[in-house]
Write a protein that binds this DNA or RNA. Structure first.
Lengths: 157, 157
DNA sequence: AAGGCAGTGTTATAGTATAACAAGTGCGCA
DNA sequence: TGCGCACTTGTTATACTATAACACTGCCTT
């Protein structure tokens, strides 16, 4: 399955955008949370960008569309999306990216190309199992990010 | 070996500070880079704190001692320490922590206790091996951080 | 109608980080 | 000796990232 790591392979953006939006809307309905216009639009912006965006980049888009011009508007929507698992925060970049497989609950891992800035998501369960157990440490959230260079960029050097 | 994950166990701070400073000094000599007073003092501050510190916390200490009062002074020293592997940046906290085993070249992983803020370092090689290879992605740096609660804090709840 | 809750709008400010340039220091070499 | 070079530090200014706090709205409930 190359599906698992979709970041670096070309694919049908339009389809993955509408399908991700639909999934998100469904999950919001199931969970009894609101998929408001701002929240939906922010997710859409992230999906369209198809890469990690800073909160202020997102905000600039919102502003251009009259959906909000002040930082909290963007940060609130982004926080919501991250809480619901529709987007992820990339700590290393202080940026946000739409989730590649919003249906699954996962602890995601990211590969960040320093050349083209693409962010690919992979599932990496169990990473901390052994050392954490050894230390009696109970894990609640993990951040797993790798910076490097992707095949495409490597090829064109 | 509990040595491997030393963050949460009590130990001789004075010894680990002087020994880490000596190691750093040795490595600087070997590598032909300068272990200047500011750099040394910043490492010492991190070692004394024995937890992650923000750049501005470090800067406040430097300022109190007349070693520098402007952000770039702290950031430069911290960047140097991170480059040389004497300290690590914790992305999730926007903070820095002294390296627990400065002699080894490693790709470190951290466990961050959200209760006592202790940061424990473990070595976690190979984390990204399979998915990265699969995607043709060449890894240059990794960020691996887990947030949770440590045994001590769990016990005292 | 009254009260509560979730979301949004806005002001203001806190916290994190770096670009750019000036100036000092040590060192090798003409 | 004195020049130039590499490196580090000092400083100003500013950019980028993030959140606290409070006002307002709409909607649902009692």
């Amino acid at each position: 399955m190359t599906e698992q790591i979709s970041g670096f392979v070309p694919h049908d953006h339009h389809h993955c955008i509408t399908s991700a939006l639909d999934t998100a809307a469904d999950q919001c309905r199931e969970r009894g949370v609101q998929f408001t216009p701002v929240r939906k639009r922010v997710l859409e912006i992230l999906l369209e960008a198809h890469t990690a965006m800073g909160a202020y980049d997102v905000l600039a888009r919102l502003d251009a569309e009259g959906l909000g011009s002040k930082p909290p508007v963007a940060y609130r929507a982004l926080s919501f999306l991250v809480e619901q698992g529709f987007a992820h925060r990339i700590e290393k970049l202080n940026a946000f990216v739409a989730c590649s497989h919003p249906a699954a609950t996962h602890s995601p891992a990211f590969m960040i190309c320093r050349s083209c800035n693409t962010v690919a998501e992979a599932d990496m369960p169990e990473t901390f199992g052994a050392p954490a157990e050894q230390a009696g440490f109970t894990i609640e959230k993990t951040v797993i990010e790798a910076e490097g260079i992707c095949q495409n960029c490597k090829d064109s050097e």
